[in-house]
C-alpha cells in the first residue's frame, strides 16, 4: 500500500487574497496542460467549489458528482479563462454555481425535490456540518452584509443564488411582480458590493 502524503493539493476552505492571485496564475498554467498546477489549483478551489455546490444542490451524492464535473471541466476548459475579465476564483465559482443550479433545477423538474426534502429531514443540517469548518473572515462578512439588506432584497438574492430558483419562481414565492424582484436582486447585489467592498 502506498503512502499518500497530503501536503500538496489538499483541500482548503479559506479564500485569502494570496490564494486568489495564486489561482489566477495556476489556471493559466493549467490552460497549458500543467497537471501539477492543476493539483495545486485543486487545493485552492475544491473547498469553495464543493461548498457552493453542496449549498445549492444539498444532496450529498449529487453535490459530489456536480463538484467533480466542475473540477474536471476546469481542467478541460482552462483555456477559456480570461484574466482580463475577472479573477480565476470568480470564474471557477461562477461555473460551479451554474452547474449546481442546472442540476438542482433538473432535479426539481424530475420531481425529486420532495423525495430529497424527505431524506434531508433525517440528515444533519448542512449548516451544522459547515459550522465545523474553519470559516475565515469572509463567511462572517457575507453573513453580516446579508443581514443588512432589506428582507425582500435578501430573500430575492438568496432564493436565487443559494436555492437555485429563477427570478420568476422567486416572484411567485414572494408574491411580488417580476419587475420588483429584478430590482430587489439588483439592489441587493449592489448593497452587498458596498458592504463587502473593503474585503475584496
Amino acid at each position: 500500500m502506498l503512502r499518500m502524503p497530503r501536503a500538496r493539493g489538499q483541500a482548503r476552505c479559506g479564500l485569502g487574497e494570496g490564494d486568489r492571485v495564486e489561482a489566477d496564475e495556476l489556471l493559466l498554467l493549467v490552460a497549458g496542460g500543467d497537471q501539477k498546477a492543476f493539483e495545486e489549483l485543486y487545493g485552492l478551489v475544491s473547498g469553495p467549489v464543493f461548498g457552493l455546490v453542496r449549498r445549492v444542490v444539498r444532496d450529498p451524492a449529487q453535490s459530489e458528482e456536480v463538484a467533480q464535473e466542475v473540477l474536471l471541466e476546469l481542467w478541460r476548459s482552462a483555456a477559456k479563462f480570461d484574466p482580463g475579465r475577472g479573477s480565476a476564483m470568480s470564474w471557477v465559482l461562477t461555473l460551479a454555481h451554474r452547474r449546481a443550479v442546472d442540476r438542482v433545477r433538473s432535479a426539481r423538474a424530475a420531481g425529486e425535490r420532495e423525495q430529497r426534502e424527505a431524506l434531508r429531514a433525517n440528515q444533519p443540517a448542512f449548516d451544522q456540518v459547515t459550522e465545523e469548518v474553519e470559516a475565515g473572515l469572509e463567511r462572517e462578512w457575507v453573513r453580516r452584509c446579508l443581514d443588512r439588506l432589506t428582507v425582500l432584497q435578501r430573500q430575492s438574492v438568496t432564493l436565487a443564488y443559494y436555492e437555485g430558483y429563477t427570478y420568476r419562481e422567486v416572484a411567485e414565492q414572494l408574491s411580488l411582480p417580476l419587475g420588483t424582484v429584478k430590482t430587489r436582486m439588483r439592489d441587493g447585489l449592489t448593497r452587498m458590493r458596498e458592504c463587502l467592498g473593503g474585503v475584496a
Binding site: 473547498g47 461548498g51 470568480s90 475584496a200
Partner: peptide, 16 residues
Amino acid sequence: LSEDAVRLAWSTAAPP
C-alpha cells in the same frame, strides 16, 4: 454583478 454574486459563495466553502 457577477463578481458581487460570487461573493455569496464565500460563505459556503466546505472540505470535499
